[in-house]
């Protein structure tokens, strides 16, 4: 069983890794590259805790093979802040208490960022449906949705 050599760019850094054919991108991120901010909640694409973007597209990293990442640009939660400058969503989530246990938070932030890049002025319903694949069991979603809407408004004002 020979391992596959994959060349990617992860959070802006050229990254190479070796992986088994059956390893998911999530396995690679967490176990090979030490990027454990991406979480596994189900392994079946039903919880969104493993959300990352691949070539700008939001995906569940548990539903993609590591080998498929050849030549792709991947962004994980670790790539969301610019150095010590948190992304506005990250700041707002802390400020508005939009997390309790925090296990779903990386996936939700990655997903919400992807939404705001496409739609800077989403309605509450649009946010709720966009994030429907990101399960949160602690918050009842209220503060998460408010934080995303509030961040969107801040970012619109700032731009």
């Amino acid at each position: 069983m020979s391992r596959i050599h994959v060349t990617t760019k992860i959070n802006g850094d050229a990254t190479e890794f070796l992986c088994e054919a059956e390893a998911t991108l999530l396995d690679v991120l967490r176990d090979e590259l030490g990027l454990t901010g991406t979480k596994e909640g189900c392994g079946t694409g039903d919880c969104g805790a493993c959300s990352v973007t691949v070539d700008g597209r939001l995906v569940c990293s548990c539903l993609m093979l590591g080998a498929e990442a050849e030549g792709c640009e991947i962004t994980t939660i670790e790539g969301m802040a610019a150095g010590d400058q948190l992304h506005p969503l990250q700041k707002k989530f802390i400020e508005m208490a939009a997390l309790q246990c925090g296990i779903c938070t990386p996936g939700i932030l990655v997903a919400a960022k992807s939404l705001l890049e496409r739609n800077p002025d989403p309605s509450e319903e649009e946010v709720r449906y966009w994030l429907a694949g990101n399960l949160c069991r602690c918050t009842g979603y209220d503060k998460i949705i408010r934080a995303v809407l509030d961040t969107a408004a801040d970012m619109r004002r700032a731009s």
Partner: peptide, 13 residues
Amino acid sequence: GIDKVTGRARFGA
């Protein structure tokens, strides 16, 4: 907060 929004917080796995 910062640990949990940046992915630094270490959970069980």
